[in-house]
Design a protein around this nucleic acid. Sequence first.
DNA 1: TTGTATGCGTTATCAT
DNA 2: ATGATAACGCATACAA
Lengths: 284, 284
Amino acid sequence: MPRRGGRPTVYDVAERAGVSIATVSFVFKQPGRVRDTTRADVLRAARELGYVPSASARGLANGSTGALGLYSFDMLLETAKFVSGLPSGPAEEPDPRSFPLYVDEVQRGFELECWQQGMALLLSAERSSGVSVMAGVAGRVDGLAVFPGAISTEELELTARAIPVLAFSRAPQDGAVHYVTVDNRGGVRALLAHLVDVHGVRQTRFVGAPVLPDLAERFAGYQEASARTAVPDDAPPVGAEGAGRPSSRLSWRRGAPGRAVVRERPARSHGAGRAARPGGGRPG
Amino acid sequence: MPRRGGRPTVYDVAERAGVSIATVSFVFKQPGRVRDTTRADVLRAARELGYVPSASARGLANGSTGALGLYSFDMLLETAKFVSGLPSGPAEEPDPRSFPLYVDEVQRGFELECWQQGMALLLSAERSSGVSVMAGVAGRVDGLAVFPGAISTEELELTARAIPVLAFSRAPQDGAVHYVTVDNRGGVRALLAHLVDVHGVRQTRFVGAPVLPDLAERFAGYQEASARTAVPDDAPPVGAEGAGRPSSRLSWRRGAPGRAVVRERPARSHGAGRAARPGGGRPG
DNA sequence: TTGTATGCGTTATCAT
DNA sequence: ATGATAACGCATACAA
């Protein structure tokens, strides 16, 4: 039984197995270094006691936590509504399930990668209070990936002095922070070119206020491509009024009845490839 | 600058601010206990150094990690295919996005709760290798929730001796493990009663092999309810042949075109309530 | 092969 | 109000 009511430690296991704490540690870290019979004794003692190595002590001893962090913005609409760039409509009840953008996809990929690397994944989110908890997260991981949000670049740079930091969808800065971005501008240009050239679309409209860097870039790409559209659209981007629904619902409406979905029949003369799957949302 | 090339510690901050390490610690844990000017000095020094408190050391010192764990089964189809109870069809390319059942919903709720409690969330999954990593997770959290999977009840009980353990969708056992389950049997009974009484369905079929406890209970409920069906169905449950598609795709087909979805028009004489939303899948 | 002893960074209990 | 110091549980260089 544990010495003082707490969780059993190496000392408890060592005592029960009649060995020293070093041997106990060896059994778990360098099994080949102890005799078979001794190892069996230790393992049995550990099992009988319900011994679980403390990651805190282990991390402190070897200088790393064995976990990677994923830091995202607030999961409630109150914060998330700013992300799409569309002003939100009349106040609605916050729905935790309305998580916009690509977050889940990226997170799932991150999970898989961590799992393959044998690392734990620490999820954490910005508090709506505005008080930064970055430090609280940074202190418990060996590396930290950060979704776009209210975190200042300064704080990112600061955190990057302690551990490797990776920022998603941010304008790359000089410094110690690593960045992963997509070609927003080129993407929208290609999209528009496709609509015009392949589908013969003659009138377009950019929906969403380009307030965030990503969206600003997309709008820039839109404007660039509009120059060669048959019917150039110089109208300003459409906000909430034009969109007709608050942005918070956009993520819910993927493939929902009544929503316009581009159904492209595979054109062999065009390399675009896979058709959109209306029912291809993520599983619940 | 850090003493030896590593991350800055309390010693570095203390030295830079001209105080002792105790004072540094007080500034972060009991701010009111130090003089304003001293506190300012310490905070400035910490900021200049990019100091981030070590969660390992902190956890070791006060005996808790400040994190909760969520342990799930393997995220690849190879393992996940067993969960639905439907044998899988011909081998397919594992798609990480095919995560069956309620997992994402529960996980999201868990995230929100952790976030509200100011706790970190540690995600972890069963390795396909079969080697248990439960201990690795249990050692780094103050409590652990476990999705159904290949983990033995014995190991759950064992882990529960170190930290509180919560098991989802398991047959409750006597012991230290906490359980959260749903009324599978009653749910299916109610479902069948609804189909028969409200929609006049006269023939039904249970799809899926009742191999897991949850599914066995649902099948039991189905059999119980079948007794009062107009046309009792004593046919065995339908396996992969009858389902027509491998189970791994079921989660993708929620609300997909061609799938049968119960569209109930709210019947005021019936308390059932909300109609099913075909497009109500989760955001991507 | 196994034991002894030290250090990891922080907290908290004493002193001062 | 602040400083010195003993845990906390584990890993590991060094002894034996």
